[in-house]
Design a protein around this nucleic acid. Structure first.
Lengths: 216, 216
DNA sequence: ATTGCATTGTGAGAAATTTCACAATAAACT
DNA sequence: AGTTTATTGTGAAATTTCTCACAATGCAAT
């Protein structure tokens, strides 16, 4: 499989959701134009992205729904389930536990961590909250490879180091600070405040860019 | 002010946070290299971005903290406060109310909306929740220009249309669907599921891209 | 079978974004 | 005052990303 850019990977995730819907509705084939409409982008972009998957469509019928969906599932590693953990059980952390518990029952959050002794050893949204001192051990024990960081900025590097020591390979970071990690660990940044600033800027500005990109 | 790309606007928001910290710590000047370290990018990138602001630094001293911070605040329109509203008071919506109430007291959420009659006419996290039928009127009355959408995907376009009719100019959309809006309304997309898919992909993959971009 | 047609797959070009590299310059030091 | 030094501001190159445009293709209709 060729190297795929992070942007393409993001769009493939969008296509996957669309394919899941199409499949559920029993639509056997789909054209790049229909996908483009559903994802809010151009048809050429869709075809380029699907090239990375080595998906094949046929003229006049388009892409076979079931087959491409399977390729997408393989691409995102549905087979080898990865385990998640969360650091930071504040407002955001609790919402994420609930939200992901609903929307992603296939990849449950195995453990949560928080520095506040009030919160530890309790079950929150169906997930037990442990003290941060246990992080390295539990991450290793539960074979957790993906971490979500929802702690204040000044605590983010600390929990990152513990996660990485425990064996985490990918991080979704809500804290507004860059994380120092080994070069083989992937970090995706999600800074809500920054995104709101962008919206604020363009909302107060006649010069709205033509097509806004999807996060990241 | 020259046209500024959405990417640059995002980074300027990061710099703003850094400048706020520097200012609070009493640091009068800062070099592009220090900013680059704090923001996790290159020094040339920082200087390019600050050019868009028309910020001026001097060799040997760098950028004057107080002055550039003021330029950044102006850039993001701190002067003309914009009002926010939220659609969707589920797990995510409630967390956002709490989170933004804490972190952004300067731009309070004026109103929340939800389709569930159980939730309406109640105060949630210091914000009253109204039925969706009132959206157009209340958005106009409160002069709301920025909306946060945290409803399920199939309800997103509906609340978008009501927001736009009421006068909203910018939207932060958590729903995983593209929104159809007039060309002068800005939409920023934030799809948590997609971001987690990206992390999952790269976590299970030796080929981690060199430098991951921030959100969007 | 043959023709017609809409769609894929993709090379090539365009556009956007980042990085390089260096002249200009302001402070510090002698 | 002149010299040194480190840093800014910015053309220009490099890289990445997107879009165009069209030949190749497979199905449907005749």
């Amino acid at each position: 499989m060729r190297n795929v850019s992070t942007k393409t990977v993001g769009r493939l995730s969008q296509y996957r959701r669309i394919f899941m819907n199409l499949y559920a509705q029993g639509q056997t084939h789909v054209h790049s134009q229909q996908l483009a409409d559903a994802a809010g982008m151009g048809a050429a972009q869709v075809r380029r992205d699907l090239m990375a998957l080595e998906a094949v469509g046929t003229p006049a019928k388009g892409y076979p729904t079931a087959q491409v969906l399977e390729q997408l599932n393989d691409f995102f590693g549905v087979a080898e389930k990865q385990h998640l953990a969360l650091a930071g059980v504040g407002n955001l952390g609790r919402a994420l536990l609930a939200y992901l518990g609903e929307r992603r029952p296939s990849t449950p959050i195995m453990a949560a961590f928080d520095a506040d002794p009030e919160k530890t050893y309790k079950e929150i949204q169906g997930c037990t909250c442990y003290p941060v001192d246990w992080m390295e051990d539990l991450v290793e024990k539960f074979k957790i490879t993906i971490a979500i960081i929802a702690v204040p900025g000044d605590a983010a590097q600390g929990v990152t180091d513990r996660f990485v020591t425990g064996g985490v390979r990918g991080i979704l970071n809500f804290a507004p600070v860059p994380l120092r990690v080994p070069s083989d660990v992937y970090v995706e940044y999600l800074d809500i405040t920054m995104l709101l600033d962008k919206v604020t800027y363009f909302a107060g500005n006649a010069q709205v860019p033509t097509s806004s990109d999807v996060e990241s």
